[in-house]
Amino acid sequence: MVNNKIEIGGLNVFYDGVHALKDLDLKVREKEILGVIGPANSGKTSFLRCVNRLNDLHDNFKMAGKIMLDGKSIHEIDIHLLRKRIGIVFALPLPLPLSVFDNIAYGPRTHGVKERTKLLEIAESSLRAAALWDEVKDRLETSAFKLSGGQQQRLCIARTLAVGPDVILYDEPCSALDPISTLKIEEAMRSLKENYTQVLVTNNVKQAARVADRTAFFLMGEMIEIDETSRLFTAPADKRTEDYITGRFG
């Protein structure tokens, strides 16, 4: 029996009247890595930002449809608690202009953790989980901007982990990184599988093939198909999926 962590039904999204996402039905299973692929403007990011309600910050955003987290509508969960439970890692490494430690501590502090020893514990465990601890343990107090791009992105993952989410969303997390840094991030994702449900939006088809358990293909605001990654890549049901993954467009 597979548990569904997130269930989405009939989701439609509009920005400034543009129909960005059409009738999306999708279930994310507990502790899987779901890859989401598709060309630019296919609605991948719109979908992601609906799940933790970051779209609400957008002035001209409208949505209709249902999104459930553990069987409960996300609109019935306190928005701050929702974002605490569903973390996101953005496309560019976005450290705050603070030290490595303060970047990690930012979230927990927001949620009321004050004692430094506790914060240090959280920092160590999150940095370890994001496979960054060994590289930064001696420079927790240096500015986060001094880290390399790949380290910064893993710092952002650790920062997300530090508030204790059960779901992590990735919005093309490696699009600004070199291949070696990308591999390190993918390793981190695999090791996080044990405890977290992860959704990876990527414009890199191979990345989805490497890390995702299941993969969904989006095109122009619609989900064309979703399947086990191995099946989707070897025997796609839809011609458009095949064209995309074989590099005929996109």
């Binding site: 701050h80 974002r83 930012y106 927001t110």
Partner: peptide, 13 residues
């Protein structure tokens, strides 16, 4: 703007 998004995404008010 991204600083604000990061903060919001971590559940800050």
């Amino acid at each position: 703007r991204s600083f604000r998004e990061v903060s919001f995404s971590l559940g800050a008010s």
